[in-house]
Design a binder for these strands. Sequence first.
DNA 1: AGCTAGATTCGCT
DNA 2: GCGAATCTAGCTT
Length: 219
Amino acid sequence: MGERQLTPAGGTVPLGREFFDRPAHEVAPDLLGRVLVYGPVALRLTEVEAYGLPGEDPAAHTYRGMTPRNAVMFGPPGHVYVYFTYGMHFCANLVCLPEGVGSGVLLRAGEVVAGIEIATARRSAGTGRGVPARDLARGPARLAVALGLTLEHNGLDACAPADGTLAVLEGEPPGADLIRSGPRTGVASGKETPWRFWIDGDPTVSPYRPHVPRRRRTS
DNA sequence: AGCTAGATTCGCT
DNA sequence: GCGAATCTAGCTT
């Protein structure tokens, strides 16, 4: 493979596995401003959410233990957990804590800093419409599309630069005064846990939507 | 075996 | 603002 595309804002140093070997709610705010690279596309993370331990965090996919879908979350830290939801969307997480513990950080939004043309093509494919730059990765499923992540990438190691093109670079983390936190978006339980973290004032942060129970289909 | 809710997004009203 | 698209997991018959 050729040189990984880097940007001045992205830095060049990949985060090591030890970065992810901590509780998700500690990793999450530290991920803001870091640069996630997959192939030709790179994005600066602006919004993330932490999901906690089996039996402790009712909003987490791992709350009730390991299943075929969430097995990657119980693997080693620094791998990517991709899941399929609402019958049509993919969302990506970075696994935290040692093997055997199911926990991770949902990647909710970012600013595309490399490969904008490719990301735009992916996001507008089939729609025949343009996509504003700030919307390219504004929302977890949009982020996955922009980066080109699908179920095929579930389990990929983001801490093995020699193996692939997926990595999280050091980047330029925002000052602590710019980091905000609040309740997680769209979760029914665990509303009181402020484990959504974002960069204050960044236009790529997704709008907050409180959980609303879906009305039952009218017969 | 069947039903419901979900870490969502898009297009139309 | 609302409905559709339609996979997965957990809980109920």
